[in-house]
């Protein structure tokens, strides 16, 4: 239970920070696409007899980078490239499963997460990855923010925008596969997008918005895990419902005209 909470909080912070950049780049569904491609990776791991999370990391990151490259080279729109990535991951997974005659994997925990069963090793890995990614983001803060705000101007001011873009995709890949344990493949986007959409309505400056988003995200995850523990249901659903509740509440406050940015 402690492990679940600790890992959950780390993942909540990670997803909200990485997700904020994705949302602002109109890449909201990218998390989903990577998550689906990790399905192919997991199938591959099971087939090869390797720990499936490792192959999931490998396959997701590589395919995300490849699709980004293709997108740029052939000038494919963001949403179309996401659709390609998303479906090819699932397709590869299905073919591998078919070829191997099917396995008895715990597909349910993969689809919906299994944070209550997280091991000590996994917890350590989650904390380490969260720490590393946050450090990278903090140390390249201006470059990442500027290239998210306007690529062309960032380029003119000498920022290596393309490298930064690949870095973000790379970090998003790691974040997604790490978070599968919390909410599973199907609900990843929720963690990336909902707290950020909510926070953007409150925050004025960038740092303020990021902090508000993190707070919402952590709140949803902690309350979600505790609630699901008490009622013995999967945490993924409760976590996402709570964050949707926060979003709905914010929209309500906003349309009632009560929201003034501080």
């Amino acid at each position: 239970m402690h492990r679940a909470l600790i890992s959950g909080i780390a993942i909540a912070i990670l997803c909200s920070v990485v997700g904020l950049f994705l949302v602002l780049r109109r890449y909201s569904l990218f998390g989903d696409a990577i998550a689906h491609s990790s399905f192919g990776g997991i199938a591959l791991g099971l087939l090869a007899g390797v720990y499936p999370l490792w192959t999931a990391y490998g396959v997701s990151i590589v395919s995300a980078l490849i699709i980004t490259k293709i997108k740029k080279k052939y000038n494919i729109s963001g949403d179309a490239s996401i659709a390609v990535l998303l479906s090819s991951g699932i397709a590869v997974g299905l073919v591998i499963i078919g070829l191997s005659g099917g396995f008895t994997i715990d597909i349910f925990s993969f689809l919906f997460g299994s944070i209550l069963l997280v091991s000590v090793d996994d917890t350590v890995l989650i904390l380490a990855l969260t720490g590393i990614i946050l450090i990278v983001i903090l140390s390249l803060y201006r470059q990442i923010l500027y290239s998210t705000f306007n690529e062309e101007q960032a380029k003119v001011s000498g920022i290596p925008v393309e490298k930064i873009n690949y870095l973000i995709i790379f970090m998003a890949g790691i974040t997604v596969v790490t978070s599968i344990q919390l909410v599973g493949v199907l609900l990843i986007s929720a963690l990336f997008v909902i707290p950020n959409v909510t926070a953007i309505m409150y925050g004025r400056g960038f740092k303020q918005t990021a902090i508000i988003s993190m707070s919402f995200s952590v709140f949803s995850v902690v309350v979600g895990i505790l609630t699901s523990y008490i009622f013995d249901i999967t945490p993924a659903g409760t976590i996402v419902l709570i964050s949707i509740g926060l979003l709905g509440g914010t929209m309500g406050i906003k349309s009632a005209g009560l929201l003034s940015r501080k």
Binding site: L24, L145, F149, N150, A199, I200, G203, R204, G205
Partner: peptide, 10 residues
């Protein structure tokens, strides 16, 4: 200058 209209930046 093109940017997301609701970009959270002052």
């Amino acid at each position: 200058p093109i940017f997301e209209k609701n970009f959270p930046a002052t």
